[in-house]
């Protein structure tokens, strides 16, 4: 084997190295690379890290403050449980409207999660990966539904997708789709309110992941779609899961936008929160019972997801 025939004269002469007398390291002694290997998106080093016991002591004052936070967040729920008419619970649960509302709530919230994933993940990808003019504006606009009072969101949805709305007029007249007062409308309202939670979480996940894994996939012949499906998605699974869980929780509890945009009709658009609100008008016991059902389901789902999507160390 021979070296190639390129001239030995460097393009850029080593003028700066003209007078060399300093010989630092020993001859042919390997040195450790100063460039540390970058951490992975998951934060797990490629090599198992040396077992350093990290002492985890909370800064002074954190513990009592955290206890107050937990108490503040749980006390109202405890009160709800304490107030529950346990004796009449089975009867209240088997009331005809309850199961209908529950089923509808699950359908609508899962539908909202589905729509949010379908449209929100590509949006999050674009926000995280592409630099384009007005990206910050787009992100702000996308997140606006989070701060908009949901009832206002509902009115806005009516003005956009209602029978006389900007887009609704066209949908109604040409395609024959009427969204208000339909289950589809309820899903739409919940998606409007819940999708930002998915987008913001997934975007953070995409920004946090080590993009060099995508480079590695490309060098292995994976095109953009294959890379996304087989590398990016699995790597951001924790963010995706957390985002979907947040999105679902928000959709499940959604009230204002739904009742304003989709109305309130048992079996079609009356989800659990709407049923709870109306029950509250003349029967607090029923309202409390329905709320407990919602709480129980949410608790089961969120705890169930925890192990899978929020890896505990």
């Amino acid at each position: 084997m021979t070296s190639s025939g390129t001239p030995l004269t460097p393009k850029h002469g080593p003028e700066s190295a003209a007078n060399l007398a300093v010989v630092t390291g020993g001859t042919l002694t390997a040195e450790r690379p100063p460039e540390p290997p970058l951490s992975e998106a998951t934060g797990r080093p490629v090599q198992p890290a040396p077992p350093v016991r990290r002492t985890r002591r909370a800064p002074a004052g954190f513990l009592p403050l955290a206890v107050v936070a937990v108490a503040f967040l749980t006390l109202p729920l405890v009160a709800l449980v304490a107030r529950a008419p346990w004796g009449s619970l089975p009867a209240a649960l088997s009331a005809p409207g309850v199961l209908t509302a529950l089923r509808l709530s699950l359908i609508c919230s899962l539908g909202a999660v589905g729509l949010s994933l379908l449209f929100g993940v590509p949006l999050a990808w674009l926000l995280a990966r592409l630099r384009f003019r007005g990206r910050d504006v787009v992100r702000a606009v996308v997140l606006l539904p989070m701060v908009l009072p949901p009832v206002v969101g509902g009115v806005a949805l009516l003005l956009a997708f209602g029978r006389n709305g900007l887009a609704g007029r066209w949908l109604d007249g040409l395609v024959g789709i009427t969204l208000p007062f339909s289950t589809a409308g309820a899903i739409l309202a919940e998606t409007f309110v819940a999708m930002p939670f998915l987008v913001i979480t997934v975007e953070a996940g995409l920004r946090g992941m080590d993009r060099r894994y995508e480079d590695a996939a490309a060098t292995l012949g994976a095109g953009r779609w294959t890379t996304f499906r087989r590398v990016t998605l699995p790597l951001i699974a924790p963010s995706l899961g957390a985002g979907a869980a947040l999105c679902w929780a928000r959709a499940l509890g959604e009230f204002g936008a739904t009742i304003t945009f989709a109305g309130n009709l048992p079996g079609a658009t009356q989800t659990m929160p709407l049923a709870v609100y109306l029950a509250l008008q003349n029967n607090v016991d029923t309202a409390v019972t329905l709320s407990l059902v919602m709480l129980a389901i949410s608790l089961v789902v969120l705890v169930g997801l925890r192990g899978r999507w929020f890896p505990s160390r």
Binding site: L158, R163, N164, F181, G263, N264, L274
Partner: peptide, 20 residues
């Protein structure tokens, strides 16, 4: 056969005034 049972009478007026 109503399409919606509004949570308040104001909701009824709103839906009619918006043309929904």
């Amino acid at each position: 056969r109503p399409v919606s049972l509004e949570e308040s009478v104001k909701g009824v007026v709103t839906k009619v005034s918006l043309g929904e």
